[in-house]
Structure formats: structure tokens, C-alpha cells
Amino acid sequence: MTEPVLSVRDLKVEFPTRRGILTAVDGVSFDIAPGEILGVVGESGAGKSITGTAIIGLIEPPGRIAAGEVMLRGLRIDALSGEAMRKIRGKRIGMVFQDPLTSLNPLYRIGEQLIETITTHLNLSGAQARTRALELLAEVGIPAPETRIDNYPHQFSGGMRQRVVLALALAAEPELVIADEPTTALDVSVQAQIIALLKRLCRQHGAAVMLITHDMGVIAETADRVAVMYAGRIVEVGPVRDVITAPLHPYTKGLMGSIPSLTGETDRLTQIPGSMPRLTAIPSGCAFHPRCPRAFVPCPTFRPELQNEAKSQVACWLYQPFPVTAGALP
């Protein structure tokens, strides 16, 4: 197996607050292979975005990476100095945010923002950077880039702005693009275009993608593998086909059951009782056990780790021998 582009091990992100330390991401591990698209799904507050933000090193203080490591092609980046990390951001890891309407600075022409990004990372003159900016705009499908390059963000539609954002994220040919809900704020009709564009561009540039979303449709269409997050942990990770057609973890099953199908005749959509726990009150053991229809003896006490099961990995006691002393513990 080739060396992964990104390797995250036991990542733990904490936010100290007055009411104690909140653990938003708790022991998350995953790899992304070169050129691979990893989908990350989960409900709001599952820690998806925080994981992405932690990888690129933009957790707002007082939040901090409390444990674990993030390796970018073998280089440990979570402990780098601010300046060294800055050189990686944009250059080796690109990021796309949720809302294209607010991602661009309204007071600068899009060309200025592109050229600024290009000259920060690549050793190009102003004129060369402008040529490169024009190429990028053409590549992301902005019509008439020569005139549009001098426009301000508010002169573009939402979909067009997200194309500009993609051009910005790809400006320095990063090896990894973290796309944090890139289509959530867009019209449904534009979503598919942007996802197709993201997929095509990353294929062409050979960039791996971490695609954060809560839209299973987007994942099914785009991703190679998918990681399902719940309460700051990954509960299941595997090839997208397997996870969608044969989910293992009860939470994943619930998630899949709650999606309406266009072709199949589902009588009722299943729903998962309860809601995701607050960060201040994450249940002991498996965080999902209070809502889990199949919870049993070890679940409230012991936390399951990810184990191989079929082609996937799943963190659930249903698939692994559980500690026998469970019932005897206080």
C-alpha cells in the first residue's frame, strides 16, 4: 500500500470552558490515500468540521489539539510552529468552506485574492500569477475569465463564488483538499455541478479530498471511502458501497434508514430516538449506547475501538469480543 497523504492518529481536540473541558474530537484515527476522496458524515456537532479545522491547524484558541498526531506524507504537522504551518496551509492542504457568500473578502477583486494566494506560495511574478489566476478561473468554469477576474465577489452568484473558492483552494496545487460542507449553502441545482467539479479537479490535480458533509447523497456520488462520526468519534469507516449497502454500526444503520430512497418503496423512514449528546454530557462507554436499539452489557461501561470487520472498520461491541467482567463492575 502506498504511503497515505494524510494520516490522523488518536486526534483529540479540547475546548476549555468555565464548566470544564469539552472534548469535541476524541481519539479519531483515519488515513487518506493519494487521490482518494474520503467522505466524513455525521450529524451537526459530531466533530466533523473540528477535525478538518484541526488538521489544517486553525483551531481557535483556547481550543487545542490535546493528543494524537497528524501526519502529512510522513511529516508531523500538528506540532509545527505557526510559520511552518502557515507555509503548509494553502500550499499543501487547501480548504473550502461551507458558505461561498462569506468566504471571499468583499472589498477585494477576486483576481487580487487569487494573485495574493498564488504569489504567497509560488515563486511567480505578478504577471505570471495573473496568467495562472486566469487559467484557474477557466479551469473551474468561470466564463470570460479575462473580464471576470477584475470583478468583486458580490458580482458573482453563489455557485460561481464557490467555483472561485475552489480555484483559490487549488491555486498552489495542494496534495489534500479539505472541503467542509462545500455545497450546503448552495441551491440544489448548483450542488451537483460543484461536487462534479470538485471531483474532476481533484482527479486532474491528483489531490486527495476530505469531504465533510451531512449529505449522504453527496458522499454516495463522490467518495471512495466514508467515515461516520458520532459525538467526536469515528464509529465506522469503510468503502462507500459497503457502508451504504451493508452498514455495520447501529448508528450507521439508523442513518441509512433515515434517508428516503427514490427507487425503493420504503414504507417508513426509520428514525433514531433521542438526539446527539451535548459535549458537556457525553455518555460513558460507547457514546451511542443510550440511543442504540441493540445496546447490551458492555456498552455503557467500555468504549469500543475500531476493529476490522468485513471490508470496513467498526467500533461496536456487536462485532468484537466484549470484556466479560463488564457486568461485575460498579
Binding site: 486553525l58 502557515r86 496551509r89 494553502g90 487547501g94 468566504s103
Partner: peptide, 29 residues
Amino acid sequence: RTDYIKFARARGLSDRAVNFGHALKNTLV
């Protein structure tokens, strides 16, 4: 706190460019 400042940081711009190029100009309006 705005998204475009976060995005500017994610693009790897220097603190100087982010704080004085992007943030200050928007502040001064």
C-alpha cells in the same frame, strides 16, 4: 471572526496580510 478571514488563513496568507491587508481594511469602512 468572519469566514473570509478564516479562509484567508486557510489559504496560508501571512498573519500580516490577513490582519492588515484583509481585516483592517474591512474594519475601517
